[in-house]
């Protein structure tokens, strides 16, 4: 995992399906590994491969026309199971950014904790990206975290996105939450003395 997010200009992989759950991103039967590596092989396993592990020609990851570090998906991406393996699989496959009009909460945290940037855009802008890619499959997108914008290069259409300032700093500098929490040890111990019961 790259600990640091760099701004990028990339072509995109369009997946205009809504409610993509983490069971589709990485099915449960592939969660048996005990390290964080290698999950990209089984990313979207059952959409990507048929019986006997034959690639399904109609799935976008099997279509050489669409490549890039940015996955663009329909609303409510990453719903369902809390499995962080979904973020590991996307990262291991090579995605740095996921764009959608809506993200499930747990997935969003998991992505950020793995230095994958979830970019939430308006439904209108999402459709603009899909249209741009439909027109020119290699259409490039710029994702700029410092200035918090996403731009369709060919048309110059641009939208700003939100990110919590703390998470932005973490992504740009490669910090993680545990470093910060470990620094709070004194406060944690002080808090514990104020609670007579474990609730």
């Amino acid at each position: 995992m790259d600990k640091k997010f760099a701004n990028l200009v990339s072509s995109v992989v369009p997946l205009p399906i809504e409610n993509i759950d983490t069971d589709q991103i990485i099915p449960a039967r592939f969660l048996k590994a005990t390290t964080r590596d290698g999950f990209g092989e089984n990313l979207f396993r059952d959409w990507r491969f048929g019986e006997n592990n034959q690639p399904k020609a109609d799935f976008v990851l099997n279509n050489d026309t669409y490549k890039g570090k940015v996955l663009v998906a329909g609303k409510n991406f990453g719903c369902g199971s809390s499995r962080e393996h979904a973020a590991w699989a996307l990262g291991d496959y090579g995605f740095k950014v996921v764009v959608s009009s809506f993200f499930a909460d747990i997935f969003k945290n998991n992505a950020l904790n793995n230095f994958i940037l979830p970019v939430q855009v308006s439904e209108d802008f999402l459709q603009k990206i899909f249209r741009a890619v439909e027109k020119v499959p290699s259409a490039a997108i710029e994702v700029n975290l410092e200035e918090q914008f996403i731009e369709i290069k060919a048309t110059g259409e641009k939208e700003n996105f939100d990110i919590n300032p703390y998470k932005k700093t973490c992504l740009l500098n490669g910090y993680d939450d545990i470093d910060y929490l470990l620094s709070l040890r004194g406060e944690i111990e002080a808090y514990e003395t104020t609670r007579p019961f474990n609730f």
């Binding site: 809390s82 973020a87 747990i106 945290n109 904790n113 939450d177 545990i178």
Partner: peptide, 10 residues
């Protein structure tokens, strides 16, 4: 509430 593995580590 449910959490991811990085948060389990936290």
């Amino acid at each position: 509430f449910g959490i991811g593995t990085s948060e389990v580590e936290q």
